[in-house]
Nucleic acid binder design. Structure first.
Lengths: 236, 236
DNA sequence: ACCTGAACACCGTTCAAGT
DNA sequence: ACCTGAACACCGTTCAAGT
């Protein structure tokens, strides 16, 4: 309700039983409405009834365009990904920098839509585009297909999944997140006195799970190893 | 269901209207029942009514022992983790091997309970135990608190999250997984002919997302980098 | 052919009532 | 104090009926 619309479109808010015009629904229109709701109200509010309300349509009318909710979710994920990924990355003459840039792009995408982090989204069409870029960079690094394939998967594992975890924490309801923080703090204070010497030893130098330095360190370490193994790399 | 109470007292078999004895319920008993259901029927079948049926108790009686479902889920996750992690790892004189062993332990745990992979489970009590071990290994590697903290987080990011993704795929309903496989194959065949030269180039050398070699490669690369940076490591 | 309405089989959760 | 029963406010989904 009370949706602020950019543009001239006006939503007359009413309990209207007005029948929707024929053929006024489409996959694209539905996905757009789904995106609006997901970003405005959160993913757990994205229901067929909410989309119906947003479109002034009956919730069950969506079943003519999507087999079930899963199909709609995948369509939405693909839409967002395509928007974030296409045409942004261009190969340079520094293949390591390219890999790093791509990692950050994907990471940023997850953090922009953190609620989608826990959604299944592998083997989707956009995956092919990402993989093509990664493989291209490794190829320019001088690797053969075998190493390139392996390292591309290794990078993918780290980037996509580390981003997922971080985004998932971000997507948690603030209350739950703080509660976890508290639990952690309490436990840590208690454990320090017992037999957790290394936890005390590291003290404040252990970055928070939400601290991006953890993820950046992992990426650096991984890329360092790969760069070192590139054919023609300086042996030190 | 519809027991016809045609006059007088009814002795017909009834679906367990037997009242549960007082104090016969506890958090532990409930968590055990929850584990049974989760492992037998899958996580999506783990509902309060299912637990109630398993225990011959009324679904709402669980609310006396758990504030809500989230609290029950966390209790279950903690139980499984504690069982997998405690007392298994012992430090050796090879700190890199220790880190690798721990990574595999955590990875195995996720793959044993793949359905829990997508559940929030950071900053739980068992995290402190894992972190203590990781930090201990890095400390024996000669790192100071600052590097140890950073690298511990880096490893954690990779291990936990890569395992999550892999387990998540494993936890998908077989139908959905195969459907994704199909989509991927179709796209790949089509894309190969277009402008995805590197995907064609890598051919069959790109491991499947489910192939454990991707994750193992990532782990090796990360540990290599860390070992190389250890104070006193051979410069090549 | 497309959209609607009513209905079904579930959820988690609350709360007054039983014992 | 602990367990139960009924009820509430939701879900996704099916299907016959309207237009």
């Amino acid at each position: 309700m009370a949706t602020t619309k950019a543009g001239g479109e006006v939503v007359t808010e009413k309990r209207s039983r007005a029948r929707r015009p024929r053929d006024s629904l489409s996959r694209e229109i539905i996905v757009t409405a789904a995106e609006t709701i997901a970003l405005r109200d959160g993913l757990e509010r994205l229901t067929f009834q909410a989309i119906g309300a947003e479109l002034d349509a009956h919730p069950t009318s969506l079943y003519r365009h999507f087999r079930d909710k899963d199909e709609l979710m995948l369509a939405l994920i693909d839409t967002l990904r395509t928007r974030s990924y296409t045409g942004v990355l261009v190969p340079t003459d520094d293949w390591v920098a390219d890999l790093r840039a791509q990692a950050h792009l994907i990471h940023d995408h997850y953090l922009r839509y953190p609620e989608f982090a826990l959604q299944r989204a592998v083997r989707r069409p956009t995956d092919a585009l990402s993989m093509e870029f990664t493989l291209g960079a490794l190829r320019r690094g001088g690797f053969g297909p075998k190493e390139a394939g392996l390292y591309a998967r290794a990078i993918g594992q780290l980037v996509r999944s580390a981003s997922s975890i971080q985004a998932a924490i971000e997507a948690m309801p603030a209350g739950t997140r703080d509660e976890d923080d508290l639990t952690w703090e309490l436990d840590r204070r208690r454990l320090d006195l017992d037999e957790h010497p290394s936890l005390r030893w590291v003290g404040e130098h252990l970055p928070d799970v939400r601290d991006p330095r953890g993820w950046e360190a992992a990426l650096d370490l991984l890329l360092d190893s790969i760069a070192r193994r590139a054919p023609g790399a300086a042996s030190d």
